[in-house]
Write a protein that binds this DNA or RNA. Structure first.
Length: 590
RNA sequence: GGGUCGUUAACUCAGCCGGUAGAGUAUCUGCCUUUUAAGCAGAGAGUCGCGCGUUCGAGCCGCGCACGACCCA
């Protein structure tokens, strides 16, 4: 077996990178060449197509491969292969391109802008409507539809396809003797995935499917890529998240989920507007990230020469509006937290916050119960639903427990321990929870609650009387200052809402901010900075008030039975996938 | 951050003990004017995620990396 040398040669054309293969040590007069597409990874990839032995030269210009490793059955005589780039790159994409070019050469506009004002499929085909038309017979008015071809059954001189628009799907019947020979010939180059316009009358097929027999068909946008398979669809979750447009095209359930999401947010606005709340917009970029304890994203404003933070909560701005005299305000917008990702956490998520003057957290509980049970009925048609196989009953009234009651009744903690700080710390250690040294008994109780109780709260449950220690912005309870007038709402073991009677005593607020900073001051990532302006605002006087935050994404998950927050966010954050980028660029170059 | 699993044709997936990469759909060619997972006949299509190693030989074994899913922290 001869030794072989492989050398990366020069581009023989714009599209071909040639690789010269020659038996090492042999004299030869003619280059032996080989081909294939340049890779964007730097190293050209090539292989010897005839015998399928891969050769992978490195970017390093010359490299000798050991003979024994690569038993290439190369002839000792020089060999010249001429490979046509069109042949070697033949694939689905180029086939579509060729088809499109053929249509274009026949004068067909592949991206026509002239088919306007179509009707909606749903207007023609209301659900359950049985058409009056007799089978096999055209009747009624002419309809005009536009949408994407989702399936295609071609015959020699006729075809059926399904057209999908944002409202639904309808079958279209195409015949050569209706369209004319020329148009039908063009039509036969249409593919699943193309966006087209159709005009024609209704009829019923043999098996009774209401369809439209096309009198006219127009190409609106030629698709250059094949859609995922019709039967199994697109199931790869990574592709579904990265290429959400594809997911939306082929998976009706995805479309429904996001339609429901939009509807939920619309209904929330309606609910609050009807109760006199006004929607406001407060800064997403804040010089002092406040209103929650979380790691913020940092950015920089060049002209002002200052760092800004994407907000972790709108709370402090909304309460400034209470000071300003807007007595009922709400905001639905994104919050950003620079923390881990999970099935329940996305770095940006949508939060509803609302504030009502002259109200208490008890009013918020009533309002929340009413709003969410109403939403469920509107969206799912029932207050009893199933989340990931677990039945959940949202019908009011909802259970209300203090944290201590929940620890005893659900967590199985001995009532006697609750007023004994030492015993609580002992139990925490016994459960293997690690606490910061400065953590007090309130923090310890909260940790126990999260461990022992939280995930068992399936049906909606308000947990009240949160320790003051873990509630820096909430008003103290007037009878027991160690707890606050606060609740969190849990459904399916997850926190859905957090609300409290607002702290409006500027002296108390300043002290709590200072205490927070003393505890967290060394944590640069949390950036605890005292918001002096907020304290100043309180000094002017803020009405007594209650406020609440509801995680919209988690609420949508609940009402759409979505297992992951990524299923209810159109474009969830993913790490960039280099391989895909490479493919795209290679294709763009080709 | 740790563990488990996954990554093979455009899509959905097989691939045994390490021995020339397979199917269905999609695509292409031919036939086909009521089909609907249309049908019949034929054909083409692969960087087996990436890299290194072991081996005469790696989709398969080892190590590392990337991306994703789930669980844990």
């Amino acid at each position: 077996m001869p030794e072989l040398g492989v050398r990366v040669g020069q581009l023989s054309s714009e599209e071909q990178l040639s690789v010269i293969i020659f038996p090492a040590g042999l004299e030869f007069e003619q280059d032996i060449l080989l081909f294939k597409v340049p890779s964007r990874h730097g190293a050209p990839h090539s292989y010897f197509k005839d015998n399928r032995v891969p050769i992978r030269p490195r970017p390093a210009k010359n490299r000798t491969l050991q003979g024994g490793r690569h038993p290439l059955p190369l002839p000792l005589q020089p060999l010249v292969l001429h490979l046509n780039p069109m042949e070697t790159t033949s694939n689905l994409l180029s086939q579509r391109r060729e088809k499109a070019e053929a249509l274009a050469q026949d004068g067909i506009n592949l991206f026509s802008n002239s088919f306007t004002a179509p009707q909606a499929v749903a207007d023609i085909l209301p659900k359950g409507d049985l058409l009056q038309a007799e089978a096999h017979e055209e009747s009624g008015t002419t309809y005009r539809l536009a949408g994407r071809i989702m399936s295609m059954r071609k015959f020699g001189k006729a075809a059926f396809f399904h057209l999908q628009d944002s409202s639904g799907r309808i079958q279209i019947y195409v015949r050569r003797d209706t369209l004319g020979v020329e148009t039908f010939a063009h039509f036969k180059k249409w593919d699943v995935g193309d966006i087209v316009g159709v005009e024609g009358k209704l009829f019923k097929t043999k098996v009774g499917e209401t369809s439209i027999v096309a009198r006219e068909v127009v190409m609106i946008s030629k698709s250059m890529r094949p859609l995922p398979e019709k039967f199994h669809g697109l199931t790869d979750v990574e592709t579904r998240y990265r290429q959400r447009y594809l997911d939306l095209i082929v998976n009706p359930a995805t479309r429904e989920t996001f339609q429901k999401r939009v509807e939920i947010i619309r209904l929330v606005r309606e609910f609050l507007n009807n109760r006199g709340f006004m929607e406001v917009e407060t800064p997403m970029m804040q010089p002092v990230p406040g209103g929650a304890t979380a790691k913020p994203f940092k950015t920089h404003h060049n002209a002002l020469g200052m760092d800004l933070f994407l907000r972790i909560a709108p709370e402090l701005y909304l309460k400034r509006l209470l000071v300003g005299g807007f007595e009922r305000v709400f905001e639905i917008n994104r919050n950003f937290r620079n923390e881990g990702l999970s099935t329940r956490h996305n770095p940006e998520f949508t939060m509803l916050e609302f504030y009502q003057a002259y109200a208490t957290y008890h009013d918020m509980m009533d309002l929340t119960e009413e709003m969410i049970s109403w939403l469920a009925a509107e969206i799912t048609g029932s207050m009893e639903l199933s989340y990931q196989g677990t039945p959940v009953n949202l019908a009011p009234p909802w259970r209300r427990l203090t944290m201590d009651q929940a620890l005893v009744q659900i967590g199985g903690v001995d009532q006697a321990l609750l007023n004994d700080d030492a015993a609580i710390f002992a139990l925490v250690r016994e459960k293997g929870i690690e606490l910061q040294p400065e953590a007090g008994p309130g923090k310890a109780k909260t940790e126990l609650f999260e461990l022992l109780v939280e995930e068992q709260l399936i049906d909606p449950t308000f947990i009240t009387s949160y320790p003051t220690e873990v509630s820096p912005l909430a008003r103290r309870n007037e009878e027991d200052p160690t707890v606050t007038d606060r609740f969190e709402l849990f459904i399916t073991g997850r926190e859905i809402a957090n609300a409290f009677s607002e702290l409006n005593d500027p002296v108390d607020q300043l002290q709590r901010f200072e205490q927070q900073i003393n505890e967290r001051g060394d944590d640069e990532e949390i950036h605890p900075v005292l918001d002096h302006d907020y304290v100043r605002a309180l000094e002017y006087g803020m009405p007594s008030a209650a406020g609440e935050g509801i995680g919209i994404d988690r609420l949508v998950m609940l009402l759409t039975d979505a297992p992951s927050i990524r299923d209810v966010i159109l474009f969830p954050h993913l790490k960039p996938e280099l391989r895909e980028q490479g493919k795209e660029e290679a294709q763009a170059e080709a």
